[in-house]
Design a protein around this nucleic acid. Sequence first.
DNA 1: CGGTTGATTATGCTCTGGATGAGCAAGAAA
DNA 2: TTTCTTGCTCATCCAGAGCATAATCAACCG
Lengths: 305, 305
Amino acid sequence: MGRVELRHLRAAVAVADHLHFGRAAAELGIAQPPLSQAVKALERELGVSLFDRDTRHVRLTPAGELFVADARDALAMVARAETRARSAGRGDIGELSVGMVGSTTLRLLPALLSAYRTRYPDVVVRFSELPTATQIERLRAHALDVGFVRPPLPSPAEAELVLLPVAREPLLVVLPAGHRLADRQRLHVRSLAGEPFVRFPRHLGAGLYDQITALCRHAGGFEPRVAQQAIQMQTIVGLVSAGCGISIVPGSVAALTGLGAVFAELMPAASPVELALAVPRHGVSPVAANFVAVARDVTNAPGQQ
Amino acid sequence: MGRVELRHLRAAVAVADHLHFGRAAAELGIAQPPLSQAVKALERELGVSLFDRDTRHVRLTPAGELFVADARDALAMVARAETRARSAGRGDIGELSVGMVGSTTLRLLPALLSAYRTRYPDVVVRFSELPTATQIERLRAHALDVGFVRPPLPSPAEAELVLLPVAREPLLVVLPAGHRLADRQRLHVRSLAGEPFVRFPRHLGAGLYDQITALCRHAGGFEPRVAQQAIQMQTIVGLVSAGCGISIVPGSVAALTGLGAVFAELMPAASPVELALAVPRHGVSPVAANFVAVARDVTNAPGQQ
DNA sequence: CGGTTGATTATGCTCTGGATGAGCAAGAAA
DNA sequence: TTTCTTGCTCATCCAGAGCATAATCAACCG
């Protein structure tokens, strides 16, 4: 019971194309006898003769017409499977899940997305705004391909992920418009002592949290008092505007104007907060690898920092 | 350069189905090692790894997802090609061109067509009303698969065609309604001497023509005088109605009432005229063969003659 | 730390699939 | 006609593909 193989389909199609075993065999790069045998084997397997051939002429039977038409479709489908798999291998096609902390949206994303989509229009990109800790979980679970996170990462995560720094931003103070310090361009950390803080919960992103705490402690000499917690930058700025407290946020958040909050620089210039692209150390799909490459290009371009 | 073959597609699909090389190999009826090799060869050919496999688990890569989905489609198309070719081989599917002399339409066709279409609903049947001589040409040119003709056939045609008698009908005289003999139920051939005849042209169907001529000559003792020629039964009866002459036609033509013509039996009962199904002696498609079988069944059924 | 599961590597064998050459039928040319 | 050419098929032979068996190695499990 010899199964039908693609060589049989290719043989039938070639013979149908040329209506001539010799030329068909030449096209296939084999001699006539094997081609005759292949066609005959196919016909025996199908129980139908596909070609009427006297010693002089070759003609398709009705069954042959049907079969060859179907065979062409099948061969096209196989070719499609091959090319699409190769494309996927090159990262030209596929899907990509990108995670990002809230502030990424504001500055970096538009430029990056536009560059990537220009270069890889056939990749479906899905963005999710998630805190760093959640992204680490999902990267580990392969629910996310890459993620924009705030370093540093907890050490177990460092083992599985590679971090590529993509941006550094200064920290800014956010105050409600009517606050007593709201008219200052720059503020000393010490002047924030005693203020109620709106903060991002530590368990979802220790990097930025600890950096701010250390800043208050060492440059300000006080322990920040947490009045409210929120996990989205819009919410934090909104709570500040509503008078629930003040906050310290990455510089890109200053793009969130019009909410009734004002931003001021920090006086002993705090070390800038980092944004990094986290990528699994192993098993990165070509699609994700290409995205990383584009991200690197965009962030290294002159005029970006 | 090993081309992709269906065995590779079957292997990839089986592994994707089970996510387990052992079970996949069992399903394919081979051992694990060859399956591993087949998958690896495929991956090498495509330049992409389709499966992520540590020694414990097997998982599809994104490229694998795409490829396996396409491979399923391709395999389905091959299966479709096979089944349709087999169907065509059994005559269950395809096209059929049937020729017929005019009078066939009236009696035989409805019963035959209904029986055939019930049994073979997926065959597209095309009927053409053609004189015997034209049918012979087209049968020879394979423009017609089978044809209902009036025997006998010219001897060169006999060599290539097989004739199956399917009906015998008596000959009837057709007269215009106002004719002097129009009130008779049966007429002696002799009484038609001198009448102008509307005839079917001999070169398009010698069988019936010669039979009528011989009848007039031997039983009537006269030579029929041709006043008009026509190649369709409706036209012949119409010309008779219009007073252009009389005619002798197969019995089934009597179904053409309402044209102002009357029919009468012939007195020295003429040997009935035959209707036969002509089929090429060689290279008959299964579809045509099935039609012949149904035709034989229908015409041999009790109540038919 | 063995035991088990399960994929890969290594090796040998079988049988398929292709090449080569002979056979043969049908049209073309002489 | 006879002969030549064309072109599919049959027969034989050989290389390599593809499968099996056995060995190897890695990870989970008790």
